[in-house]
Write a protein that binds this DNA or RNA. Structure first.
Lengths: 205, 205
DNA sequence: AAACATTTGTGATATGATGTACAAGGGTGA
DNA sequence: TCACCCTTGTACATCATATCACAAATGTTT
């Protein structure tokens, strides 16, 4: 990384670029210009160029960017190893749906195992073993940093336990607001709030 | 609405406030000050006061805000009727999980019906009827504005159809990037991208 | 090989969001 | 009723992000 001060806003766009580049690569596109990519993902070309510049000089003037090597750089420099080990905490409806939705294999990694407090859920659902949450420390995969939280209660308590066990990133699918110390990143994906926001926006025009 | 230029960032925080206020109300809290609310949701009190001020003068100096009437105002002014009619497009794993996850009843509204193109999925799964997508216009509920998209393919095509039928807000659970004309709001909730972003962030420190 | 046409990468600038400071005004208690 | 205390709402300052404009560098054409 050229500088270690990549803006938050930029960081949020990297996954979008990566997604688009993979698709373009799959479509057989070998080189692309910031303008084209911009049209593709609805982001100004100049924003794209600046975002890229935080990683380094990835393009060539008068030519554009090489798709394949750009993907390479993104993966390498940003630390996407395709076998990121993920755990799922909460094996209810949503949790099980996410287990089966294995779209992320070979893209980010895989859900190694799941945890729940309900004894009925312990066992093996759909290839992914489910352990009791009390055995977290025992079964937490080596090097696992990221947890997907889909519990239906005691969210904060569960989060505290996860952090204590070394988790540093949590995707929170709960409707609860949870707190975490600096250094731990929580990203809340709340369907209810998302829909509310949509309602606010469509009413605001 | 006092002004019709509510900043995007503010609009994104309204659901957070509403969520917190409901919880506080449920806990029996009758009045709250911006400082307290700020601690509760991890947002600076001054940001909260400014956000509120876009709607009007909702508080009293030296006193704070009345929780019940604040919720009232949010619901009313921002147009949350608790019976927003939602449709679900795509009745696969994730779609079915969302149908069963009826946490949004009496909070935003309800999923009235679902659509899919797979004949095996047509029928009644879990109280919510599933129709064939080709019958969208026939079964689209009166006044329905928002769709939840969980299809596994042909995302853009499906979105075009939805927009043509009058949908103005879409929660996109697909990994696809979709485009829409001005006036239609797309909010993408992509688990894969979210996890990637987390990886980028934790690697960046 | 030289001139031209492109497109990158980045200073400079504009826009948007957040944080500070405080005047204005309602609540509270004597 | 009066004086004090507290919290709101907002003008102003700061910080972050997006956009503009263009020099530098490369591919392409003649």
């Amino acid at each position: 990384m050229k500088q270690n001060k990549v803006p938050k806003a930029t960081l949020q766009r990297y996954p979008i670029y990566l997604k688009a580049l993979r698709k373009l690569h799959h479509m057989g596109v070998e080189r692309i210009m910031s303008r084209e990519l911009g049209n593709f993902v609805d982001i100004e070309s100049t924003t794209i160029r600046r975002d890229f510049s935080f990683i380094g000089s990835l393009g060539k003037q008068g030519y554009g960017y090489d798709v394949a090597s750009l993907i390479e750089v993104f993966n390498g420099q940003l630390g996407v190893n395709f076998d990121e080990k993920l755990i799922l905490v909460g094996a209810g409806n949503l949790g099980r749906a996410l287990m089966n939705y294995n779209r992320w294999n070979h893209v980010v990694g895989e859900i190694v195992c799941a945890f729940d407090t309900d004894n009925d859920k312990i066992g093996s659902l759909s290839e992914v073993p489910v352990y009791h949450l009390r055995d977290l420390k025992q079964y937490l995969p080596e090097g696992c940093r990221i947890a997907i939280l889909t519990v239906s209660g005691n969210a904060q308590e569960t989060v505290d336990l996860l952090i204590e066990s070394g988790i540093v990133g949590i995707v929170n699918f709960t409707h609860e607001h949870i707190q975490a110390p600096k250094g731990v990143i929580i990203r809340t994906v709340d369907v209810v709030s998302t829909i509310q926001e949509l309602i606010f926006q469509v009413n605001n025009f």
